[in-house]
């Protein structure tokens, strides 16, 4: 049995303070905190501390701008490291993207071009980030993307594999994003899962999405669909138990509905794993 945090949910204000009562969160083994919501003093920071007192936490950010050309923000990195220390976060993750350009914060996950230049750039910045985060594991998530730049030498899977090979960065594998990207750009989601460097997967994200007909948007606003569950099970068959989080950010449901989706992820895992996923 590998060490895993089990099954978690995102910490959202609408579910507080109920989620701080262990009796009201059956099946929740850990919380994922949206990093930027908990850095500033005030209720966000207080909530992070309360969550960490109840369950293990992991930090998941959107503002690192690992693929950006603007310098990494040392103040931001220090604040994230401090929050991780204060909450004893098991790991820190962000997205494989750029989220700022020309001094502006885009607050959006824009895909980096899959080129050797980008691999060099990302490798240098991953090194720099890990120097600040120290021994705490650092992972990057495969984001959903809606555009594909022309003339990219690597497809997404080859690019991820090369990045992991070069840097040893861990992966936060968003299975819903694999589905969405393959649907939007014509890829083979099963082959993507089969080709991943399974040893690098530190955490899994599951989520729902919105199909607009001409494009699928990664809205995190619905239950996961069965094909995403099947991809998740296919991944687990390669990785074994992995910390798994169900993301629900838009049209946030009540806590029991969220917990039911968390239970669904647990049941899906149990169906393919010979051992039950570990709980803390």
């Amino acid at each position: 049995m590998s060490a895993t945090l089990g099954f978690g949910v995102g910490l959202r204000r609408a579910h507080q303070p109920a989620v701080f009562d262990p009796t009201r969160i059956p099946g929740v083994d850990f919380f994922e905190l949206l990093t930027e919501n908990h850095l500033a003093p005030g209720p966000g920071r207080l909530a992070a501390e309360r969550a960490a007192a109840v369950r293990p936490v992991v930090l998941h950010g959107t503002a690192l701008n690992i693929g950006g050309l603007d310098p990494l923000d040392p103040d931001y990195l220090d604040e994230v490291a401090e929050l991780a220390e204060r909450t004893d976060a098991r790991w820190i993750s962000d997205h494989l993207c750029f989220s700022g350009a020309h001094g502006e914060a885009l607050h959006e996950l824009i895909p980096v071009p899959r080129t050797d230049e980008a691999l060099d750039h990302l490798s240098r910045r991953i090194d720099a980030v890990r120097k600040v985060f120290g021994d705490r594991p650092f992972a990057l998530e495969n984001p959903s993307y809606y555009i594909q730049y022309a003339h990219q030498p690597y497809d997404e899977l080859a690019f991820l594999c090369r990045l992991v090979d070069r840097t040893g960065v861990r992966l936060l594998l968003d299975v819903n994003n694999v589905f969405v990207n393959c649907a939007n750009h014509g890829g083979d989601a099963q082959a993507f899962i089969d080709g991943l460097p399974a040893h690098a997967v530190l955490q899994v994200h599951l989520a729902g999405h919105t199909d607009l007909g001409h494009v699928i948007i990664d809205t995190h606003g619905a239950p996961m669909i069965d094909p995403v569950v099947a991809l998740y099970q296919r991944l687990l068959a390669r990785t074994g138990p992995v910390a798994t989080l169900f993301e629900w950010d838009n049209a946030l449901p009540d806590l029991p509905t969220l917990l039911a989706e968390n239970d669904r992820a647990r049941a899906a895992a149990a169906a393919v794993l010979t051992e039950a996923p570990a709980c803390p």
Binding site: G68, A101, I110, V112, P113, E117, H121, Y149, P153
Partner: peptide, 14 residues
């Protein structure tokens, strides 16, 4: 020619 990081940033920003 593959698009460069600088070009991507410039055009997406624009």
């Amino acid at each position: 020619m593959p698009v460069t990081l600088a070009e991507v940033h410039r055009w997406v920003h624009a």
